[in-house]
């Protein structure tokens, strides 16, 4: 799944957390999405880029604002530090189709530049996240199959395989399939294995330190490991609000340009 639902958006309604074994994969993922997705989310992160030797390359601070709008979901990412990146931002407008609208703002040019949302495999500003990792489950575009249950953390995770069923999504994605590990108690996706086009694991996502915040569970730390080059991106939550009023402006191109 993607950054938003994996680490930010999703959360959980543990209520009824006991998942019925008869649910199929799609129904299970729908329940996970309902349980974990807030209407709005505003988070401030510290982002650490870590090289293959485990050394810290750079620490960044960023805000991550998400809102469900009438016709789409919008996510706005903006860097607060280091100084070279301050003001750089990305707006992702996801209408629920295979291609999102992506706009990049660079303070050095003061221009918004459109990035082709169909090119989902692009890396996000030096991190191990690709643009598509910011999308949610994209339920209409994937076929989900329940796999086994495995121990994870102090509980149990249901593993779910997701394969793109939509031809456009299949062509645009850099992955042949993804295997989610959904914590059965919280319905939060605490792990994702990404398989490349040659069907070998290429990235691994992990969410840890889940805490209850209002109606939702959220991780305090998430990591994306690149299995091909050994690098890692780690996000640590500094501040977060869920379902609080958030102006549409905060997820707009105008806000992106306002630095």
């Amino acid at each position: 799944m993607r950054l938003r639902s994996a680490m930010l958006a999703a959360a959980l309604a543990v209520a009824g957390g006991a998942w019925a074994a008869s649910d199929d994969g799609r129904a299970f993922m729908e329940r996970s999405e309902r349980a974990t997705k807030s209407r709005t989310e505003a988070t401030r992160f510290r982002l650490d880029l870590i090289d293959a030797q485990g050394g810290l390359v750079q620490s960044r601070e960023m805000t991550f604002d998400f809102k469900k709008l009438a016709d789409k979901e919008a996510t706005l990412v903006r860097f607060l530090s280091p100084p070279a990146l301050r003001g750089t931002g990305l707006l992702i407008e996801d209408p629920g189709m295979s291609a999102s609208d992506i706009w990049l703002y660079l303070p050095a040019t003061r221009r918004l530049r459109r990035i082709n949302g169909a090119e989902k495999t692009n890396w996000f500003l030096g991190t191990e996240f690709a643009h598509e990792d910011f999308e949610d489950y994209q339920l209409p575009l994937y076929r989900f199959a329940l796999l086994d249950q495995v121990p994870c953390g102090t509980g149990t995770c249901q593993r779910v395989e997701a394969v793109a069923s939509d031809p456009g999504e299949r062509a645009a994605s850099g992955y042949s399939r993804k295997i989610y590990s959904i914590d059965t108690a919280t319905l939060y996706p605490v792990g994702i294995e990404y398989y490349g086009k040659r069907d070998v694991p290429i990235k691994r996502f992990g969410a840890s330190d889940l805490v209850r915040q209002g109606n939702y569970w959220r991780p305090q730390t998430v990591v994306m490991n690149n299995l091909e080059n050994g690098r890692m991106t780690r996000l640590t939550v500094l501040e977060r609000t869920l379902d609080a009023p958030l102006d549409d402006y905060r997820v707009s191109a105008r806000y992106l340009r306002a630095e």
Binding site: A99, R114, I115, N116, G117, A118, E119
Partner: peptide, 10 residues
């Protein structure tokens, strides 16, 4: 500007 295939035409 207009996304077409893998590019954005402008």
């Amino acid at each position: 500007d207009w996304p077409v295939g893998p590019v954005v035409l402008r």
